[in-house]
């Protein structure tokens, strides 16, 4: 569904990604793990058109995404949940969700999609008239994910959904991600919490200083001694 072929991205003189190739198969959850600064977020930014690769190709369902503006990429069916959630703090929960469905012009469908989000995250329904900035971290993460699925994406990019959340909340969020996946949305998950990511995905890529150093089925990588030592702390 999504493939990166030899993608290299620079920020000025700093090489953030070198020759990254990866495949995300339709219907599954793929994950990208790695340490801080390994280039995980840059990979998502390169897919979403927020960073521009200077070489290599980003292909989504066969269409080349390089140089396509971000808002068009969103219209093609890719949604991003940005790192740090990036909810619209001074707008209400409901307004945030409506903006998530910005490309949906049919009001009835919009309403149905909002009900779907409330079903996945009942907590949001209780908070719908509240300013997003006043929500707790976990609720903001729910809102960021809810907002992203309002666009009915075929591919959902998640950037560190567990960041800064209490363990209990992390489970709520990951159960919701599993549900969204089961309902037919392909997911590419970027995580620092490698243990969690490997358990919740089918295929995994390990990124180190901008290069993919290992990849394979998540269950196999979870048993790999190098992964265990470097990322699972065993």
């Amino acid at each position: 569904m999504l493939s990166l072929k030899g993608v290299s991205t620079r920020y000025g003189a700093i090489q953030a990604l070198s020759d990254v190739s990866l495949e995300v198969a339709q219907g599954g959850i793929a994950t990208l793990i790695g340490a801080n600064g390994a280039g995980k977020s840059t990979t998502l930014r390169s897919i979403m058109g927020l960073a521009h690769p200077h070489s290599g190709d980003v292909l989504f369902e066969g269409k080349r995404l390089n140089r396509v503006p971000t808002h068009r990429i969103a219209a093609l069916g890719i949604s991003l949940v940005p790192e740090g959630r990036a909810v619209f703090a001074n707008l209400t929960v409901a307004e945030n969700l409506e903006l998530g469905g910005y490309l949906q012009k049919d009001r009835n469908k919009l309403k149905r999609d909002m009900d779907h989000v409330y079903e996945v995250f009942p907590r949001l329904k209780e908070r719908l008239a509240q300013m997003a900035g006043t929500l707790s971290g976990g609720e903001q993460q729910m809102l960021a994910i809810g907002r992203a699925i309002m666009a009915r994406p075929r591919l959902l990019l998640l950037d560190e959904p567990s960041l800064g959340l209490a363990p209990l909340m992390v489970h709520v969020i990951f159960d919701a991600i599993a549900r969204i996946n089961a309902e037919g949305t392909t997911i590419l998950l970027v995580e620092q919490n490698a243990n969690l990511a490997l358990h919740r995905s089918q295929h995994a890529y390990v990124l180190e200083t901008g290069r993919i150093i290992m990849h394979g089925p998540s269950s196999v990588l979870a048993q790999d001694p190098r992964v265990k030592e470097a990322y699972l702390g065993e």
């Binding site: 927020l50 969103a74 949604s79 940005p82 001074n90 903006l99 992203a148 666009a151």
Partner: peptide, 24 residues
């Protein structure tokens, strides 16, 4: 309006607005 709500989204977070499909 929903068109105008996008103005607010841009003020709040340009990147998120773009990712929603708003032509910033």
């Amino acid at each position: 309006s929903s068109y105008g709500r996008a103005f607010l989204a841009i003020r709040e977070n340009e990147i998120a607005a773009q990712a929603m499909g708003v032509d910033v």
